[in-house]
Nucleic acid binder design. Structure first.
Lengths: 210, 210, 210, 210
DNA sequence: AATGAATGAGAGTTCATTCAT
DNA sequence: AATGAATGAACTCTCATTCAT
């Protein structure tokens, strides 16, 4: 517990690269991310993480005093990743409120099939959140941001007459968030039976009241 | 590998009580279930399970040759539990197709708030399913059963004019399953922000087309 | 920390052999004792202790939850050993007050040259006592017992006219304890220069006032 | 092994300040000294020493190629300290043979209660000496010096008629050294029960034959 | 003169599993 | 049917030491 780096749960962004060594730090977190996706927290071994990042465990511990700190780092980039990709296809601009809701949702589905790793990690983190208040708090905040963003999209859609006028926007935001999360969860177990387009059409019916 | 019981992944029901010792076996599985809910697979220790069941690890291994077999047992009762309680309030009769869909969904929500443990375990199992084909297969089958049951409910509702006539029933079943799963997932992280009744109302609007 | 044995610093005697496994437990403590004498606490490795006792580290931890518990065990037998051999040659009877003081002191010197290990460990323990209150307390008690025993010997000697009549008995007991301890300490560093007999003669002069 | 300083066990004095950097070197040794007193050799960490001296471990290794070299440095200053303060109160002149023996002994007791650290380190070093010939040699030499000095004091006292005429001076020197060492050892464990003045009186009786 | 980064070797501890009884 | 004892293999974490800069 004597290293200076990452002493304090490092919640802020990680990719600053302002200091020397931040590069290796990120490599380690990414390696851990991949390994969690592949084997779960249960199967996460510091040695494997270090190997994957091309360093030794001692080096890993030079950057992260404990495994727990490393996991915090993984959570940070996972949330970051969600934030970044949430509202658009990977390379699209980030102007959220302008984006069409359908695009947002489709971006998510697209992301799901492209990078299922992120969703597996999200699942692992959610399970963890149920017993780790620190993780729970961060996920809660992330959820609330997403809901906020969806809400403003919905509000705009209602105002412009694209959606039903009687829509209960906060409830609809919860509704959409649950639906989206649920879809990604099911897709992990049975990717071939999700009837994506037809489910999208049902969402459309709900949004517009046909 | 000298013990006889549970050699072969024991997928079938567990509470038959045909053999002697089935009682202790179930106690062990239930203890494991509770511990998974409390600490995740990550934190599951055979010794703790044995302690909780009032026996020693050696005894545990008499009933379950490996930890993996124990976990299979947990999965079995978890799925069993879902099947049993899926369509009704705990004590209601089990005639699925006759049950009103709203009741089914509300039963699930009710179950969620009453026994969150089950959902935590489900989450853990889902994460596991993404890397364990055996678990994946079982979850897939369970999903498909639920979907079947929901579908028949929906079909009946459409026929009787309770629901929209243009409903794409298979897609709607997926839709409902995702929504339900998503809701329980979110509730684990942030139980106070789920706007249950208002979300239920939105579901109603979608089902009926208002 | 789940083993039942030695959970609680085991202060009582160790060689009861009433339970099964007490034998191995003692072997481990004796192995640790020897290794501390040979390499100090600094060089004490659980793996070496286990090897010396003919078991694996895992077995060591079956009996002693932590290294610290093992060390407590070592301290216990060290103090025991001092108590046992304090007042007489190894096989002499234990009737302390009857024993002549010269015999007591010579027994100690004899013990020193026969089993220097005990004194090395005592030195290590004394150093430890300066920072570990638990060890300090036990040593203090052991000291006080020795002083008590010496005092009664002195008292008897004075009464019988064997020693000076103006002797300050409590101070003389401290005096003798310090002298004895100091001699064993010096003997460790330079065994050939202790002039044992001549020092004994000087003690005699002090005791009798010539 | 690229650093130049202290390659060869550096036994000589340390505070010559002839070279640049000797200052920092001494700081490191003093830091090590304090840490040994506080935690023993067992708990001595190069990183802590460096921290305490306000440098990094890398710097420590610039001055001391190995931990062992650092420890040698500590031993050197410890012995130095004993030599310096041995015969007098801190600020008294150093003409040993002129000093009264009682003063010498009282100086030692005074030193003990003022700077117990020195005695803890001495204890640690003595324990080490039993297995490290290099340390043993140095301690032996230091002992012999002290004995020499005490002897000359005793001789003078006998000649002047201050002490008993039948005193066996070499034995008495050993006697006094053992007693002194033993007293400091006991004082570490139980400072409140040493009856200092009364023990001093008993020493007086022995010295003078009353 | 001084350091940040990196590491090899090893430390104590844990854990699922075995087996004689 | 049940267990105490034992273990191999691994785990996370530590530490003195190195080296390019």
């Amino acid at each position: 517990m004597r290293n200076v780096k990452n002493q304090d749960a490092k919640i802020g962004p990680i990719n600053k690269h302002t200091e020397h060594g931040e590069k290796k730090e990120e490599e380690l977190v990414l390696a851990a991310f991949d390994l969690i996706a592949a084997r779960g927290f249960e199967g996460l071994r510091t040695r494997d993480v270090a190997d994957k990042a091309g360093v030794t465990v001692a080096t890993l511990h030079y950057y992260f005093p404990t495994k727990e700190h490393l996991i915090r780092g993984v959570m940070t980039i996972a949330m970051e990743e969600f934030r970044k990709r949430r509202t658009s296809f990977p390379d699209a601009p980030l102007r959220e409120s302008r984006t069409d809701l359908r695009e947002v949702l489709q971006a998510r589905q697209h992301q799901m099939s492209e990078t299922p790793k992120l969703f597996i990690v999200l699942l692992e983190l959610t399970a963890r959140a149920s017993r780790d208040p620190a993780i729970k708090a961060i996920m809660r905040e992330s959820d609330s941001n997403w809901r906020e963003s969806i809400s403003s999209n919905l509000r705009e859609g209602v105002e412009r007459g694209k959606f039903r006028q009687d829509m209960d926007i906060p409830a609809a935001a919860v509704f959409l968030e649950a639906l989206t999360r649920g879809r990604s969860m099911l897709a992990l177990v049975n990717p071939d039976a999700q009837l994506d387009d037809r489910v999208d059409a049902e969402i459309e019916r709900w949004l517009t009241g046909k």
